[in-house]
């Protein structure tokens, strides 16, 4: 398995392969700033929750690295994980009925973490396998296991992500694209890649 490309988003900006694509230091609506800078036209973006928005913005950068010969429709698996599930949207939905007096349907539909993989599939017409895992921290071993399993099932490419949108504002989104190949990806390499972004 070979990492073809990776990206990272946090409130200060978005990076692709460790190069900053857009800095959002001081931006109040930083996700909107990244979207407007991306040149992508996808009005549904505004309706998404923050988990979906971040994953969408990252995937728009990474999908360009998917080799042309890959059957994306059938052989691209999505492997995502986080610690806080849909906590931020959960809180907003809870407020919609407990504080504002009307449960909001458009918030409720985002109160599941795997909605983000649904958004990516809709955008890209990906009909492949998806799964969302909950782990206490970024777990490189979990990702490597799941990537291997996906390849065992006949997939040829995996888009993986660690995406957090917490109520304390500590958003982050680490996405990486992995191609089926003879090379081995070891836990340390993947952990170090994540840590390089995290500590930047």
């Amino acid at each position: 398995m070979r990492i073809l490309a990776h990206s990272y988003i946090q409130p200060n900006g978005i990076w692709l392969n460790q190069t900053c694509v857009k800095s959002t230091v001081g931006e109040e609506n930083w996700l909107k700033a990244i979207y407007q800078n991306s040149g992508v036209e996808y009005p549904k973006f505004y309706k998404m929750d923050d988990l979906s928005k971040m994953s969408f913005l990252s995937s728009e950068l990474l999908r360009k690295f998917i080799p042309a010969e890959i059957d994306q429709e059938n052989e691209l698996a999505l492997i995502f994980a986080n610690h806080s599930t849909s906590q931020l949207t959960d809180t907003k939905f809870h407020d919609s009925y407990a504080v504002q007096g009307n449960p909001s349907p458009s918030l409720f539909v985002y109160t599941l973490p795997n909605i983000l993989t649904g958004e990516l599939c809709i955008r890209n017409k990906w009909y492949g396998e998806n799964c969302f895992y909950i782990s206490e921290q970024f777990d490189a071993a979990l990702f490597i296991d799941q990537i291997q399993f996906a390849f065992n099932h006949g997939n040829s490419c995996c888009l993986c992500g660690w995406v957090e949108a917490k109520t304390d504002g500590s958003h982050e989104c680490f996405l990486f694209l992995v191609l089926l190949s003879e090379e081995k990806l070891d836990i340390n390499t993947l952990n170090n890649l994540y840590k390089t972004y995290k500590n930047e």
Binding site: T85, H94, P113
Partner: peptide, 29 residues
């Protein structure tokens, strides 16, 4: 839900069963 919806799962499995590995949690609707 506003702190950690799965902490009690980990705690209960660890305290009641003392399982060898942390449980793998899948939340996919």
């Amino acid at each position: 839900f506003d702190t950690d919806a799965f902490q009690s799962t980990r705690t209960i499995l660890s305290e009641e069963l003392a399982i060898a590995h942390a449980p793998l949690i899948i939340s996919n609707a």
